[in-house]
Write a protein that binds this DNA or RNA. Structure first.
Length: 431
RNA sequence: GCGGUAGUGGUGAAGUGGUUAACACACCGGAUUGUGGUUCCGGCACGCGUGGGUUCGAUUCCCAUCUACCGCCCCA
């Protein structure tokens, strides 16, 4: 094969694209009810937008970014996630200004890029649907975002999910906890896994997340971030928990949960599935949290933010695994059969007439015999066939057949052109 | 970036160091003139991911490379 798609990319073909459209339209419908509006930002941004927001030590920045210099010697990067670009746009367009309602609520959907090893549910170009809400510190908004994510997954037919939440607290919380964690782990430095040794000073919270069984033994006794929360952080998180409970949303608190992006603080959450389609164990399909310093970090005013991102590839895998079925939308109403070459113009006219009446129609374009055309009509589950041969051409009629019963009638072509719906209802009345 | 498994037609797959690469599904055509199912008959890989090498000869052995999948890292 001469050409093949780049590693870690996928062609989404008919058969799958319907599922994608369903995911996207469901998301749009739900976001609308929550009053989130769509924002579309570029697929690439200045490299600094991402390095500044994701954190210099994050894996995304250090090894997963698709970055390049353009012909004008600008350092650009394909977006590895959606939030940074939205925040940049929020600031650049001065959406923090008094004329916009707060919280300012937007959603996006589109491709993201990360240079990494492909696996089930992980690609170099993948797609996310995400939401962001700016300008409110209210814990109820954290919960609204979580509830919206949950509802989205539920309406996509996914129910066997678990919601895990945690808090990273505010800046003081984090600094205190970071130090405590380093103090706790340092004496065991030599016993930690190599990965964790690297992580200890770079990003000690990561050690909590280690899958190495030996690391996990230490981690079990490590101090919990929940014991280091400032009173404000404590209060924020308590309200999140209380509000989730009030809404009847089940959740568990995992004090060891961390995020891949450095910009999060306060509430963070993940909605996970343990479906085998995504490999062993629980895999995150939707994740997010609060990022109160981010707007300021990119040069905007002090403005709170909270949001989530959902991986479409993963959701699609889960839906297939769960056997989610879509309503049949592409029913073929009429297949027009032409017997001879002379009928070609007429069959196309008839096909168009059906389409203009708002129904779906198709015909043969391979010059095949009547029998083969009927086979095709049958295979495609056509409700009706319309047959035109020399006789019909002569009489300006067509033979209309209801495939389910085999019943046929002869109707004038002009009736079809004038009002095909009428022709069908008359046909139905005769039965 | 590291480790492992795999790569034969549209699909699922069998196969061997040496004449025409099984079988099934799908698809196309036919079984007396313009009608759908079943059945029957026929057609359908100048080629065994790509590039080298070993050999008289390789799809089958070796090396490299690409891609997919799995695990690690990380993550949606």
């Amino acid at each position: 094969m001469r050409y093949q798609r780049p590693k870690g990319t996928a062609d989404i073909l008919p058969g799958d694209s319907e599922l994608w459209q369903f995911v996207e339209s469901t998301a749009r419908a739900i976001f609308r009810t929550y009053r989130y509006q769509e924002i579309r930002t570029p697929m690439f941004e200045s490299y600094d937008v991402f390095s500044r927001t994701s954190g210099d030590t994050s894996d995304i920045v250090t090894k997963e970014m698709y970055d390049f210099m353009d012909k004008g010697d600008r350092h650009l990067a394909l977006r590895p996630e959606g939030t940074a670009g939205v925040v940049r746009a929020f600031i650049e367009n001065k959406l923090y200004g008094p004329e916009t309602q707060k919280p300012y609520k937007v959603y996006y959907m589109g491709p993201m890029f990360r240079y990494e090893r492909p696996q089930s549910g992980r690609q170099r170009q993948f797609h996310q649907i995400g939401v962001e809400a700016f300008g409110s510190d209210d814990p109820a908004l954290d919960v609204e975002v979580i509830a919206m994510g949950m509802q989205l997954l539920n309406e996509l037919g996914l129910h066997d999910l678990k919601l895990v939440i945690n808090t990273l607290g505010d800046a003081d919380t984090r600094e205190n906890y970071r130090q405590a964690l380093i103090n706790f782990l340092e004496p065991h430095f030599d016993e930690l896994s190599e990965d964790s040794q690297n992580r200890l000073h770079k990003n000690p919270l990561r050690v909590l997340d280690s899958k190495d069984p030996k690391d996990q033994e230490f981690v079990a006794d490590a101090p919990s971030i929940l014991d280091f929360l400032t009173s404000e952080a404590r209060s924020h998180f308590d309200q999140v928990e209380a509000t989730l409970t009030a809404l009847g949303i089940d959740f568990t608190v995992d004090p060891d949960m961390v995020r891949g992006l450095d910009y999060y603080n306060h509430t963070i959450f993940e909605i996970m599935s343990n479906s085998k389609s995504l490999g062993e164990g629980y895999t995150t399909v939707l994740a997010g949290g609060r990022y109160n310093g981010l707007v300021e970090e990119l040069g905007g005013p002090e403005m709170a933010g909270v949001g989530f991102g959902m991986g479409i590839e993963r959701v699609v895998l889960l839906m297939k695994d769960a056997g989610v079925t879509l309503p049949e939308l592409d029913q073929l109403d009429v297949y027009v059969v032409g017997i001879t070459e002379d009928t070609s113009a007429m069959t196309l006219q008839l096909t168009e007439a059906v389409r203009q009446a708002g129904m779906t129609a198709d015909r043969d374009y391979l010059g095949r015999k009547a029998k083969a055309q009927f086979k095709t009509a049958n295979k495609q589950n056509a409700r009706y066939t319309m047959t035109v041969g020399d006789v019909e051409l002569e009489n300006r009629t067509v033979n209309l057949k209801l495939m389910a019963t085999g019943e046929e009638i002869i109707v004038p072509v002009d009736a079809v052109f004038a009002d095909f719906n009428r022709v069908l209802s008359d046909f139905a009345d005769e039965e």
